[in-house]
Design a protein around this nucleic acid. Structure first.
Lengths: 181, 181
DNA sequence: TGAATCATGTAACCGGTTACATGATTTT
DNA sequence: AAAATCATGTAACCGGTTACATGATTCA
């Protein structure tokens, strides 16, 4: 069997809450908000919206003859599909394309200088990423009410920050150990 | 430009250290050792080996007319390509297909019971994964000398375990907070 | 008015998975 | 001898990216 398609569920998630959006707006959500967790581009989204329209997961909402722009809204069917998906069981995700781990794997010798090189490069990347994530957190969740009305988003951003901070601590420890030897 | 192909480098990494292996053996490395970090199947690996042969990254080593089985070995060119790749700069990896994060993102309301459901399900998955990783660690790195001669592998396995333990602590904290409220 | 951006769409291509196929060797 | 596994390979398909294309609107 082919592997589970995720994109339509994400689009439903984006549309949830009575929102009506056109293709570009949905695309932009991937560029900003949701881009931290998933990627997609307009050339994938437009055909997907057509398919969802056929399946009656979304409907086109008429606008005052603006033409050209097509606004979509989730249907009742779509809401049901989304609700079912949200409570489906998950599995541990497949490994992500992590070149740091992969390269490290191939360096056998403990004294190979490329180990410390990889560790230090990764440290810079992770530091930058932490700054980025904390900036997002400040931007989005400074106010308590935003936290409470976007709690899932808040939680996973919090998790992402803690994860990278844990990674940074680990990197620092390994680097220190290396320097001391 | 098309995105960077990684598979040939991984195959070089697997062949590094004078090893000579056939397609099945390389495929099996993906099923066991390296499967924690990358996936590939034989239908991808055989054509890739052909291409690498054309590029002179690997060569066929003659066996005593066993026929059928084709053993490959890395060439000097291949070693150079691998060495260059290992010191190339990385970037933060694209988001992995993490359904936990994704679903969580779409649950807005702090009091939605699906939040605690997601957290608790994920806790079970992470617990199982930690057991699996620790078993791997015991199996592979009980002896000090194995650690020193596969240090990169040891490091990333260690990191994977610490990462999941951090995740588990975070999940427990969120769940507790939820139950207390 | 020309340039930039908006909004939608299609085409080409690529990496990767699943399924199909086929002789050779090993096991029962 | 039949069944299972080994070893290699091809075909079909699919999700996703990049590039191409095109009218409409907005901006300089």
């Amino acid at each position: 069997m082919p592997q589970q398609r995720i994109l339509p569920y994400i689009i439903l998630g984006i549309l949830s809450g009575q929102k009506q959006m056109n293709g570009i707006q949905i695309t932009n959500v991937f560029k900003t908000e949701i881009g931290e967790f998933w990627r997609s581009s307009h050339s994938q989204i437009y055909p997907e919206l057509k398919r969802m329209l056929d399946d009656n997961w979304v409907k086109v909402v008429p606008t005052e003859e603006n033409d050209k722009e097509i606004y979509y809204q989730m249907t009742g069917d779509g809401q049901n599909v989304l609700d079912e998906w949200l409570v489906e069981s998950n599995t541990i995700p497949l490994p992500s394309k992590d070149l740091f781990a992969l390269k490290m794997y191939f360096i056998q010798d403990k004294n190979d200088p490329r180990i410390i090189q990889l560790l230090e490069e990764q440290r810079e990347l992770v530091k930058d990423n932490i700054l980025h994530l904390e900036e997002r957190n400040r931007l989005l969740f400074s106010k308590e009410e935003t936290v409470n009305s976007n709690y899932g988003h808040f939680l996973i951003l919090d998790r992402a920050i803690k994860r990278q901070k844990g990674f940074l601590r680990w990197l620092n420890k390994q680097i220190k150990q290396y320097k001391d030897a």
